[in-house]
Amino acid sequence: MFSIASEALDLNRLAEEFAHPAAGAFVTFEGRVRNHNEGEQVASLDYQAYEAFAVAEGSKIIEEAIEKFGLLECRCTHRVGHLDIGDLAVWVGVAAPHRADAFTGCCYVIDEVKKRVPIWKKEILETGSSHWVACHEEGAPSGK
């Protein structure tokens, strides 16, 4: 399940639905708003989504991850709206029988979401200027 949220994410609520008796591993990823990017001091972020398309593409990614890594449960939620430093912007949860597939599946979901899902962030800098983050560079190392 992939969803877009306009209100603050509740970690306890997000972690519900993962109590699977066959799950030996539950891996989560929290993407948070950090105070710097590419040498600039970031004050806050504004996120926008083309929601219907984002949910469809995000759901495809979840299905791919379940299929590729044999996951028992997989969910991702992405915030839209104005976020401050430290706020939770995106959350991925993955349950699998063993930890290797859970870790790999979690990485797969966040990497693909960043590449494929129509969501955009605008950086508001400490200087007061702002800009839409252009794109993730092709061939950039995974994990950035």
Binding site: Y50, A54, A89, V90, K114, W132
Partner: peptide, 10 residues
């Protein structure tokens, strides 16, 4: 119709 700029979620 939507023109999709380079995405930057995450």
């Amino acid at each position: 119709v939507v023109f999709i700029p380079p995405v930057s979620g995450g």
